[in-house]
Write a protein that binds this DNA or RNA. Structure first.
Lengths: 235, 235
DNA sequence: GCGACGTATATTGTATAAAATATATATCGA
DNA sequence: TCGATATATATTTTATACAATATACGTCGC
């Protein structure tokens, strides 16, 4: 469940897969900004591989929605409108609440324990100063462990993708505002406690509010930012 | 909105895209059965292209869930368990009901007209004898036109993919039982009428029942079939 | 005969090279 | 000068060739 062959440094099974992960991380971390053209030979040269695995990585990311292909013109990093970002969160709320309702009756003690471990890691991170790079991953793991007992692999996969697509913008927000982090932390704690109590009704309500509050926070942040020139990285 | 450049025979913008469509159609139509290995050389030779566009088409289909890649071992046509098929329909019900609720208040006359056109095409098809090949496409178009006013592109894309994944099994059922078709036809008519009346409550209820009834019908059919050796294609 | 190892073959994964398409620049005519 | 067409350049798409990996088979030792 952790990172595959972590710390060994052994290279992945295929270049395509490794490139997919690396490119995804760069996009999510905004190292490559929205709308940017992705030149195949440039990437190939940078990674020291041919263009074939680069193309295959980009194709994979296109399936995830992170890049957009225009035939014969190439790939660009997908730029989402505020409406599209809103939709990500609305879908998250819809599907995740359903997952949680199915999962809670089947939650075992070890699920709760794992969730509390993740909460502890969150706190640790918070005290060490913002690590927005890992925040999204940790946030996903917490949600995923609560939904896992539902045994709904397709729904889980869809939700993971929704998280990923929203992650870019959440990281941006985390970089600039600390309040979001604290609020999420508090709601996560309550959510795990409600799950431990098997309180389906209240846990569902809280989860729904949690996701929609994150939505509104983020949209307000982005609306402000986009309205006024959005100057963060200069060139 | 119809088939792109139908009958012209003009090749698509790229080979990869054309191959993706062709392979998808073969898989959905069960020309290539579940679990079958897809050899890249074989496909390349058959279509008269190199393995590169074949690989890219397969990668695309993997993103859609129709094929599964095992590193260094190749692609196989994804085989779904009954539980996974159940999940497809449960997700459809969840997301489509939400879409319909958002769409109905924004439905315009021309949406309804278009829906009735599709219903007429259904009837025409029914009278000409079963054309299970087009059934899934038509079914999707009907649902899509009702959801379109919601302006939720991501949700629509997810639902289209769910339809596609279920389509293989629906076609199988349609080939062997006519009753499903008639039942769907009747429910579709009622659904469009309720939409025309802007009756969100009843339309939502009917849509939910419609999808879940299709689910139960199909699962019963497949359980029967899988239990008893599933002999249809001999070799 | 049985299991472990090594080789041969088939298939996938990647690199390089050629073809097709799009974009930019230049040339021509009015 | 302006617009349109033609040419050149950049980039993507596809083909061919090579390398890496997995599977099948056979050989050897016991």
């Amino acid at each position: 469940m952790k990172g595959p062959m972590a710390s060994t440094g052994l290279k992945r099974q295929t270049m395509s897969a490794a490139l997919t992960d690396e490119l995804r991380e760069r996009i999510l971390n905004l190292d490559i900004p929205e709308g940017e053209q992705l030149r195949q030979d440039t990437l190939a040269a940078e990674f020291g591989v041919s263009r074939i695995p680069v193309r295959e990585a980009l194709l994979q990311l296109e399936g995830e929605g992170l890049v957009t292909l225009s035939a014969h013109k190439g790939y660009t990093v997908t730029a989402l409108s505020l409406d599209e970002i809103r939709e990500l969160f609305d879908l998250r709320a819809l599907i995740e609440v359903d997952l949680l309702q199915r999962a809670i009756p089947r939650l075992e003690t070890h699920h709760i324990e794992r969730a509390r471990e993740i909460l502890a890691t969150f706190d640790e991170m918070l005290s060490r100063g913002s690590q927005e790079r890992d925040w999204g991953q940790l946030n996903w793991e917490l949600h995923a462990v609560l939904y896992e007992p539902a045994e709904r692999p397709r729904a889980l996969s869809i939700v993971r993708n929704l998280h990923r697509n929203a992650d870019r913008y959440l990281r941006l927000q985390l970089k600039l505002t600390q309040r979001t982090n604290e609020r999420a932390r508090e709601e996560h704690n309550r959510l795990v406690n409600l799950c431990a109590d098997r309180d389906v009704i209240e846990a569902s309500r809280l989860l729904n509010e949690h996701v929609l509050a994150a939505r509104d926070d983020l949209l307000a942040f982005l609306a402000e930012r986009r309205g006024s020139g959005e100057n963060t990285h200069e060139e």
